[in-house]
Design a protein around this nucleic acid. Structure first.
Lengths: 322, 322
DNA sequence: GTGAAAGCGCTAACAG
DNA sequence: CTGTTAGCGCTTTCAC
């Protein structure tokens, strides 16, 4: 690998001049610039990022922390994030935290000593105090960590109400909710949306916990129907649980959507592969990823002052389960 | 952030001594060591990785290049890789290449200038010559790039034959193969396995291309059955296509497994959520990821000389589709 | 306009 | 056993 010195020697200038043309900063004579560019090409020179980082105390890597890479929602998100970041010359350092605080502490320390330029965090466990130690720009995705930490989230509450309203509009009156795990931001918001809408509609609530998981939701659905055989609608807080519900209903021999209608939340591809295909509130995952990455970049470049909070909307996608 | 100088000053020693206790290299008096450790703790000092990397010309990041993060197979792989690597103090730099060569060139250059310690690559496009430029250790996963580049793969050929044999054992005689994309290593190997086994069994072959994709495989299955209504078995080269086949069969009103049996290849969770649940050749994904990461680490640490090639076996998992 | 030189934080000879 | 020193490759004052 050629260094800046090699280029300087070949172009018969000082390293300072090479650095100037590299960064397009300061005055450089047209003649000189040409000679330098020539030398760069000839040596196939690429500036060493590590050396640059040491001086700048900042790399072009962005830490991206997600709780569970095997949940299909996150890879899609990461893909969008990665795409935007790569376009701007940044690189993604990926961390799978399992949303465990001890892992998180480790990760945050790594981010610090690796001089990452910023971090994108999806976590229910991280609180403001954890982030206070580190002084790099952060954007929270999908959950709000604190009002003074920027975020891009989905309108879980309102969109959940919309899902319920849709079911009501399709004639459902006894609608159960398969809720996600306790303490998880999105899960609590969707639950709140369900409850408020049911109350406003003057309808009774039936709630079971499916923990955002397949097997748990199958179990939960079974129990729900045992206790309330006359349910005519299920609003699952995510698609995986909706798939579980449909699986349980199939086992019980209950016809969808005739006897009972099912709607999910997320919009993962998976929902389209089952029979009947799943109606769902589709999250704008790509937009969520792009927007978060762009916002972070803006903060890094100082193009934006205080914390910003964006809220995107999920969109109803009607398929065969309703 | 405290630097090594701060520690040295507080402990009243030179930076060299601090460096020695940090790296556990060279002689350090017991008394001195204690004072240094004390100072480190007091200042909550963490060595700066970037500075260290600049000197060593090597970071503790490992580049991980995968073709498609939205294919559930890869996130599972990345998770296993990440886990092993993190345990050893390494960090994952993730790149989604779409398996496009132009992206790949960019990525390889980044790996170079970022001083990554090594790379894990899943790609059908990358050839030996691309990797020759860069002189960092590489392990190819899931595909063999060249005999002198280490690899960890799955026994696609033999395991495909096993899948076919199983179908034959269950009484199938007219077995079609939904093949993956042309030119993709795993896809070609599985196709070869299918063909050889069918020939040996003295059975006729029926092949359609599902491109490893859901929609394409639905289409392909429809056409297959239109031309050969008497098929009694389908071996799909991956689970996604198997899911597509099952979906197509459902539309055609063909009963599984009574009229036709379906087996996939991969073992992704998805296969368990559809009805009927999918029989498949389950790949040892976690082992694949762990093994690759370990091998790479060994190469990095010089614990292993020439290129090594490991081949793991997929395992038959019988569920309801056969 | 351009160059010399200091320094980012760390490691590894080389002395002593 | 411990300290001094010279860089790793780059950027940025500060002179000229």
């Amino acid at each position: 690998m050629a260094t800046i010195h090699d280029v300087a020697k070949l172009a018969e200038v000082s390293v300072a001049t090479v650095s100037r043309v590299l960064n397009n900063r300061g005055y450089v004579g047209a003649e000189t610039r040409k000679r330098v560019e020539e030398a760069i090409r000839e040596l196939n020179y690429r500036p060493n990022k590590v050396a640059r980082s040491l001086f700048k105390k900042k790399t072009t890597s962005i830490g991206c922390i997600i709780p569970d890479i095997t949940n299909p929602f996150f890879p899609q998100l990461v893909k969008a994030v990665e795409q935007t970041l790569n376009e701007h010359g940044y690189t993604v350092l990926l961390f799978n935290s399992e949303d465990r605080l001890d892992r998180m502490d480790q990760i945050l320390e790594v981010l610090q000593t690796e001089y990452v330029a910023g971090a994108l965090i999806v976590s229910d466990q991280v609180k403001k105090k954890h982030l206070d130690k580190l002084d790099i720009p952060v954007v929270a995705i999908d959950k709000i960590i604190s009002t003074n930490i920027s975020s891009v989230t989905v309108n879980n509450y309102e969109n959940a109400r919309e899902a319920v309203r849709y079911l009501v509009g399709r004639g459902c009156r006894k609608i159960a909710h398969l809720r996600g795990p306790v303490g998880v931001y999105t899960s609590e918001e969707r639950l709140r949306g369900y409850q408020d809408e049911m109350t406003q509609q003057g309808l009774p609530s039936y709630i079971a916990n499916g923990h955002y998981q397949l097997s748990a939701s199958i179990q939960a659905t079974m129990e729900l129907l045992q206790q309330h055989p006359d349910l005519d609608g299920i609003f699952a807080a995510n698609d995986i649980m909706a798939v579980g519900a449909i699986k349980a209903l199939a086992r019980l021999g209950i016809r969808i959507p005739d006897e009972i209608k099912v709607i999910g939340f997320d919009g993962i591809e998976w929902g389209m592969t089952i029979t009947p295909e799943l109606t769902t509130m589709e999250q704008p995952i790509v937009e969520l990823g792009n927007k978060s990455a762009e916002l972070l970049l803006q903060i890094i470049n100082g193009q934006v002052k205080g914390p910003k909070h964006y809220r995107l909307d999920a969109k109803l996608v009607v398929r065969d389960s309703t």
